[in-house]
Design a protein around this nucleic acid. Structure first.
Length: 606
RNA sequence: UGCCUGGUAGUGUAACGGUAGCACGACUGACUCUGGAUCAGUUAGUCUAGGUUCGAAUCCUAGCCGGGCAGCCA
């Protein structure tokens, strides 16, 4: 990622020495020898997003002379596509301006965080293609420093130990429209506060009995400034610090200082922290340490899914999906298992842009991103999802031809392969209609179509199940002169369909996915309802036994293919077995016929 | 009723006081051994009302509408 001279980074326990001495208001950052960003690039490339614009301005004005960002997840769940937006933003911002981006875990709540999430988050960020080098940090590494800073604020008379219960704190806080009132413990002496806070650390008090609070302003119109809690008593084992602590700093007392310690220049975060910025600034000012600049952007929303970690957790715990990596989940690992590529996700993040306006991206934009990527790189194969048997009556019983097929028309270097052809084939049920509607170009009684890479065939006879009337087999004839798909007499066929030779077919399980939710915004529920009411009952369809061309016996877990005319499919990394592959449908191909059919039905109804 | 914040085609996103552009979608058409891909074209927008200005999406004022905030979550 970075081929430039490495930045003198600060590590945990090694706060920049310049930090404490820096003028707090200007927050003059530690010097670095980086070239300022290329102004010409900024000018020749006029379309900067608003964050890039701010950075360019900061660099020009001299507020900063380098760019250092960070991606700060809490390890309390798996990353989702919304996090991808933030990851891509932070890492590419650093890249564009020749700077650095840290990975920092904001692990200040031991009751919700786990080592497993840390592992998974690192895997996902790496998979997306980003490298934080040796800059893997943890807010928990700063606990001792944070404690000292808390003591400093007590000594300055800017923090106090409060004995109010959680309920009382809420009552004293006031409401959105009414001011709060001072805690009765607000004016304890510095000595008493110091003593109490130390004893909090020593574990003398039970959970929830006392807090350390900043002494700011109980009448502030910004509720975050009404004496916010800095430390709470929590006798919980932390995944990294073990039992070393029984008091933990709140996120608000941690985040800004962590960015400061790491010498972050631009702290990119989501909109809901806008109201917290004055508080972060207050801490930084009181502590007289280096100021990063916080910039808020709108988080990603996508139609037909949810981005809330809480809800995602619920879907997993209540088994509405098959784990965090269920291919229907918007998680990075879910998308990965589904068959999405990192490139597609990064392109997606690049195209959706970044702004302060709360917006919802249509799921088709994500789908288009993977289509575009896989169209370029996925080898084509033939597979039949819902087989209908075809017997070519004038084709010799024991004859087998090896026909040549193109692996990827978008990429000549992908080469060609042989596909066996014989008298008995499977075609897609959808490719036959006994009573074809207008504009249906495929097979019907008496009609001729082309079998891809093979011959023209004509449907001579339809065989049905006597009981049910269901079409079970087609009797066809082929024209030997049309091998390769062209008729010497110049006659044309409108349709080309895919097929698999029945005796040669490999059998595969295919999993068809659709939106997890049936409603564009599943969170938009009437009173008494739940997003669960909108879970799409058809989000997964399993086809256990699909004939696919024999070359697929070589497919490895994670391999992606285009099943011609159907969509892109990825060999499942969990359930696929040699000789019995399992394919996940990543996304369908654009389906013009389906659209026409929908319109026809729509018109009929009118 | 408080504070913060935002509003540009259907959906996103540019335009930095000087011709409202781009992408996706939708709709046409061309091409095609994938009804895929590709190519060409059409469609449609500055929340409202005032003001400043030769000129306003951009600056000012008022209004309207949306989002966030009352965890010892992040």
């Amino acid at each position: 990622m970075s081929d430039h001279p490495s930045e003198p980074t600060s590590g945990p326990g090694n706060p920049r020495d310049t930090a404490a001495g820096a003028s707090p208001s200007k927050g003059s950052p530690p010097a670095s020898r980086h070239d300022p960003p290329q102004d010409d690039e900024a000018k020749t490339k006029p379309s900067l997003n608003f964050i890039e614009q701010i950075i360019v301005d900061d660099l020009q004005s001299g507020r900063f002379d380098r760019v250092h960002t960070r991606f700060p997840p809490e390890p309390n769940g798996y990353l989702h596509i919304g996090h991808a937006k933030s990851i891509v933003l932070n890492f590419t911002l650093a890249e564009k301006f020749n700077g650095l981006c840290n990975l920092r875990f904001d692990d200040t709540n031991p009751t919700k965080e786990e080592e497993e999430y840390v592992r998974a988050i690192k895997e996902d960020v790496r998979w997306l293609g980003f490298d934080w080098e040796d800059r893997e940090f943890y807010a928990s590494d700063y606990f001792e420093q944070l404690y000292e800073w808390a003591v400093l604020l007590i000594k300055k008379g800017k923090a106090y130990v409060c004995d109010l219960s959680p309920e009382e704190i809420r009552e004293y806080r006031g409401t959105l429209t009414e001011p709060g009132k001072d805690s009765p413990y607000r004016n304890r002496s510095v000595e008493e506060n110091l003593d109490l806070f130390e004893r909090m650390r020593r574990g003398e008090f039970p959970d929830g009995s006392r807090t350390l609070r900043a002494k700011i302003d109980m009448r502030s119109p910004n509720l975050n400034l009404r004496d916010p809690v800095m430390y709470r008593v929590l006798h919980a084992r932390h995944h990294r610090t073990g039992d070393r602590w029984c008091i933990y700093p709140t996120y608000d007392f941690t985040h800004g200082q962590s960015d400061s310690i790491e010498g972050i220049t631009h702290s990119i975060c989501t909109l809901e922290f806008e109201n917290h910025r004055p508080l972060y600034d207050w801490y930084l000012d009181q502590l007289e340490i280096y100021h990063p600049r916080q910039i808020e952007f709108a988080r990603l929303n996508l139609t037909y899914t949810v981005m809330s970690k809480r809800i995602l957790l619920e879907l997993v715990r209540e088994k509405h999906v098959d784990g965090w990596d269920d291919p229907r989940m918007p998680t990075i690992c879910g998308l990965r298992r589904r068959g999405y590529t990192p490139e597609a996700i990064r392109n997606f993040c690049a195209t959706i842009g970044v702004a302060k306006f709360d917006s919802t991206i249509d799921m088709v934009v994500l789908e288009n991103a993977i289509r575009e990527d896989l169209n370029r790189r996925a080898p084509r194969v033939m597979g039949v999802l819902r087989p209908l048997k075809v017997v070519i009556e004038n084709y010799p019983e024991d004859r087998v031809e090896e026909l040549e097929a193109i692996n990827n028309p978008e990429d000549p270097s992908a080469g060609r392969r042989k596909v066996p052809f014989s008298r008995e084939l499977y075609i897609e049920r959808d490719d036959f209609r006994e009573d074809p509607p207008k504009k249906f170009y495929r097979l019907a009684p008496g009609r001729e179509v082309r079998l891809r890479y093979a011959y023209f065939i004509r449907c001579e006879q339809v065989i049905k199940d006597e009981q049910t009337g269901e079409v079970i087999e087609l009797r066809c004839s082929y024209d030997p002169a049309t091998l390769g798909g062209k008729a010497p007499d110049g006659r044309k066929v409108k349709g080309t369909i895919h097929w698999v030779s029945a005796p040669h077919a490999l059998r595969a399980e295919v999993r068809l996915y659709d939106h997890l939710f049936s409603k564009p915004n599943p969170l938009d529920v009437p009173d008494g309802g739940s997003y669960l009411d909108y879970l799409n009952p058809n989000s997964l369809e399993v086809l256990p036994d699909c004939p696919v061309e024999p070359s697929l016996s070589q497919a490895q877990p994670g391999d992606r293919y285009q099943f011609e005319r159907l969509g892109y499919f990825c060999v499942d990394t969990r359930d696929s077995a040699p000789g019995k592959p399992v394919f996940n449908r990543v996304v369908t191909l654009r389906d013009t016929w389906a659209k026409i059919e929908r319109q026809q039905k729509g018109n009929a109804r009118r």
